[in-house]
Design a protein around this nucleic acid. Structure first.
Lengths: 231, 231
DNA sequence: CTGGATCCTCAACGATACTG
DNA sequence: CAGTATCGTTGAGGATCCAG
């Protein structure tokens, strides 16, 4: 409850006191996808201790970043959501996520993807979210057993959890979809290698691959080769 | 040395494993200002335990974000600097710092400013760093006992630690300079109230205030008023 | 004097069990 | 469903000490 204070009158220090807490960035990521119940958050953050989640939510509420809405009437569940102040964090979360994604090659042993992580990644991959106004396409995207869908319509892209009923193209992939988003795997090679499977018009898949972009960092250290100069 | 792992193949999770460590964001902030010796970092981060700093620097080195350059020849000191991969963090650090700054009103009890925090803030305040090509002005900025300078020249703004010798305008202020950057304090009022003192052409001060911008958040919770809906 | 390493203490985190 | 309680473990905080 008593967050770390850095004792500096500095924007980054103030931000670090909130988002620098363990698990907080991932909690916020899940909430950027949409309002969530306590149990949704537990399910979407494998390994988080329940008391840590409770503490973080209280801290975020106290910081004015998150609202806690108790159920009333027929509702049954407490719902957590970002406040307007919390929404202002999106650009920072996107920038951080993009930076982190730039360093990702293969998943590490045991690493998983969650619905929120894929949805957030697809939103970031959509960039400014603007597409030609005459595009009207819905994609269902399955990565492992995670299900999301992307809609390009009215000049905008949106990504949300769950499948759409009226999808124009079904995309099924593993973590290799990351290479597609990075542009190092062409749509053709992705299909040919079996890294990605589709059901529907391949031209729509090309459009997907051209529109969604999460580049690799151009400056990754060789794994195992220390960047340090020792002497 | 063994960082927290979140077990998710997700950009934000990977980023959080690095920048989510305590003190790491502030270490990186100081390094964005320029290469630093170990003792510089200790001096610029009041309260950081020496072993924590040593551990963080090793982790950052291992992550390919920071280089450690041992002295050779006549040099006397180890120097830490951002790698190209570390430089890529700037947009994320800027976005986070801007968000945090949006929540700052008054300094809290005991909060200080450091040379790096002011320099970083001025760089963020400079936005894209572009100004009319015919501006050629050097400002010395003192906030408390912290000394920095800002140069507008060749269409660009730069901010660096220390004073310039040939400054066109001397600016002396306290933390109230924050209100000037937010635009809630006009240059005239800043001078009239004594919040800021200058030596030199007041028109140059107006230019400074118009060019440098770190806005307040429009969505701050009332201090002490919980954002929660309890029921 | 710089650049740490060591040691100890304590608060925070992690895992599990349990409750309104 | 949404947490709190308990307890073991880890990492941060603080002081001191040591090597080049």
């Amino acid at each position: 409850m008593t967050n770390q204070h850095y004792g500096q009158f500095c924007g980054l220090a103030r931000a670090a006191e909130i988002v620098g807490q363990r698990w907080t960035l991932l909690i916020l990521r899940d909430l950027t996808v949409g309002p969530r119940r306590y149990s949704d958050l537990v399910a979407g953050l494998p390994g988080i201790p329940t008391n840590t989640l409770a503490t973080r939510l209280k801290e975020l509420e106290e910081a004015g970043v998150v609202t806690r809405t108790a159920p009333h009437g027929t509702e049954r569940s407490v719902v957590y959501a970002l406040t307007p102040r919390g929404e202002e964090l999106r650009p920072a979360l996107d920038a951080l996520g993009l930076w982190g994604a730039g360093g990702m090659r293969e998943p590490r042993e045991g690493e998983i993807v969650t619905t929120s992580s894929i949805t957030a990644a697809l939103r970031v991959a959509a960039g400014d979210g603007v597409v030609p106004a005459d595009w009207d396409t819905t994609y269902n995207v399955r990565v492992g057993d995670v299900e999301t869908h992307v809609v390009m319509q009215g000049g905008r892209i949106t990504a949300d959890p769950g499948l759409a009923e009226d999808a124009d193209l079904e995309i099924m992939a593993g973590p290799g979809i990351r290479d597609l988003l990075a542009g190092t795997l062409t749509p053709q090679d992705a299909l040919a290698s079996g890294a990605v499977q589709i059901q529907g018009d391949p031209a729509l898949f090309d459009r997907f691959a051209e529109t969604m972009r999460v580049p690799y960092s151009a400056h990754l250290p060789e794994p195992g080769a220390p960047a340090a100069v020792s002497g």
